[in-house]
């Protein structure tokens, strides 16, 4: 498809979808959202880009092979689970760190749950994109 309007619009929309996916990923613990939905939205962004500008350009924009992204995500998720061992807890127990905690405020909460969510995000992004790109190239 060689429509200049579509290409200009798709670039804007891909950026919008990627920003929204990061927002969905980070708010996931307390509100609807999380790694899975964030990954799906980010994959949609890349698919829009691939439809408008071609699969080769989309692969270049992604920089890494989708399969490697999925593998790295699986590794990160496993790392988040194993981290619990340092505190002597069972596998995949969430560990929390509250920076600047006071009596009535929790400060900045950091957790291994977020690391696990990032892993899920990368797995979903890589898996969906490897399927979508292969389908695009096969047609």
């Amino acid at each position: 498809m060689n429509s200049i309007i579509l290409i200009a619009g798709a670039r804007l929309q891909a950026v919008l979808l990627l920003v929204f996916s990061a927002y969905m990923l980070l708010r996931g613990h307390n509100a609807p959202g999380g790694g899975f939905i964030g990954g799906l939205i980010a994959a949609t962004g890349f698919v829009v880009y691939a439809i408008a500008c071609g699969t080769a350009d989309a692969r270049k924009a992604l920089r890494f092979d989708p399969g490697s992204i999925a593998g790295a995500g699986l590794g990160i998720a496993l790392l988040a689970g194993v981290m619990a061992a340092f505190w002597g807890d069972a596998l995949f127990t969430g560990q929390w760190l509250f920076i600047g905690e006071t009596e009535d405020s929790k400060g900045i909460p950091l957790s291994t749950v977020l690391v696990f969510d990032i892993g899920v995000y990368l797995v979903v992004l890589g898996a969906i994109l490897s399927i979508a790109f292969s389908l695009e190239e096969a047609v």
């Binding site: 798709a10 929309q13 929204f20 509100a31 609807p32 939205i41 949609t44 829009v48």
Partner: peptide, 20 residues
């Protein structure tokens, strides 16, 4: 107000469906 996020995602993905 989580329904507003549904509306947002639907608006973004609906465009993809039309293009496809």
């Amino acid at each position: 107000y989580a329904l507003l996020d549904v509306a947002l995602v639907l608006a973004l993905v609906g465009f993809l469906a039309t293009v496809a």
